[in-house]
């Protein structure tokens, strides 16, 4: 299973930079960059904070997609 996210899309919709979003949820810009690239799966706490910023449920931002090939761990 692979974790997909709409963080970049939602950030663009709200006209926010990575730094703006990072400040809003209390993390570094690199963390936002890692999440957007799919290199890091955020904790539930962070996902909930993002959901609050974007006024969307967590599952509308993050979703699991079945991977046809190898399984992804993050």
């Amino acid at each position: 299973m692979e974790l997909f996210n709409r963080v970049k899309e939602l950030r663009a919709r709200y006209n926010m930079t990575q730094t703006d979003l990072a400040k809003a949820i209390g993390v570094s810009r690199q963390t936002i960059s890692l999440i957007e690239r799919g290199d890091y799966a955020p904790s539930v706490v962070l996902a909930l904070k993002m959901a609050e910023v974007f006024h969307e449920p967590v599952e509308a931002i993050f979703s699991l997609k079945k991977d046809s090939g190898k399984e992804r761990t993050t």
Partner: peptide
């Protein structure tokens, strides 16, 4: 460090 930085 935040959680992703700790992960790194």
């Amino acid at each position: 460090l935040d959680e992703a930085e700790k992960y790194i």
